[in-house]
Amino acid sequence: MADKIKVGHVHMSGCTGCLVSLADNYGGLLTILDRYADLVYGLTLADVRHIPKMDVALVEGSVCIQDKISVDEIKETREKAAVVVAVGGCACYGNITRFSRGGQPNQPQHESFLPVGDLIKVDVYIPGCAPTPQLIRNVCVMAYLLLKGNKDQQELAKKYLTPLMQLAERGTEACGCDLMYDVINQGLCMGCGSCAAACPVRAITHEYGKPNVNREMCIKCGACYAQCPRSFFNFDVITGFEGILETIDGALK
């Protein structure tokens, strides 16, 4: 189909969990590849050696700055892709790779891993470890509507993606501490519990209605802050939740 968008999966230093999450859309992924997107690049999934031109690059993993190929490839990704999406905690914030001190076989000198946004401009963030199949799916559908949809669909896609673009602008550091700095310290926490539900390592409990972060356990994936309804809450999109969820479901049927 001529009006499909070109999507690539660029694998930096990550555990492939993000790619597995994309695949965990099962039938939905096949529908996406059938109707909306051609996978033009992807480790193990597409037999392509060099990064081609594409509409959307889904980047997984952080960049090891001691690995020249990785550094070259991430720069090339920026040149070749119209939209760069950082998929998952490592690409967005470094996540677990933040704790690397090198010394591991068989490349002990590979010790410094940077979030993608420290080397190139990133357009959209999908935080979380692993990022959820549903958020990856939603972003894929919205990216398609943004590039190929009618005027109303483009408008909706723009509104939907805006907070994820703002998260990309916000920076490359995340931590459970964000809940203190940017929510509780700002007088915004109302104790809903979203952060604790979102945390993949159960580092967050609620004591008397407010989150308590076990900072030793936090892996810096950014899920808690992104999930918090007081990090961002775009009424113009979320109020239409029923219609949007139906649209996404319909698009993948």
């Binding site: 959820t132 979203s194 539900a197 979102a198 950014g222 808690c224 309804p229 809450f233």
Partner: peptide, 20 residues
């Protein structure tokens, strides 16, 4: 606010795999 959290969680499930 908790209903807002649920709906945000359905549209932007950063850490709510398979929940939406």
């Amino acid at each position: 606010c908790q209903m807002q959290a649920v709906r945000k969680g359905q549209l932007y499930p950063a850490g709510l795999r398979d929940v939406p």
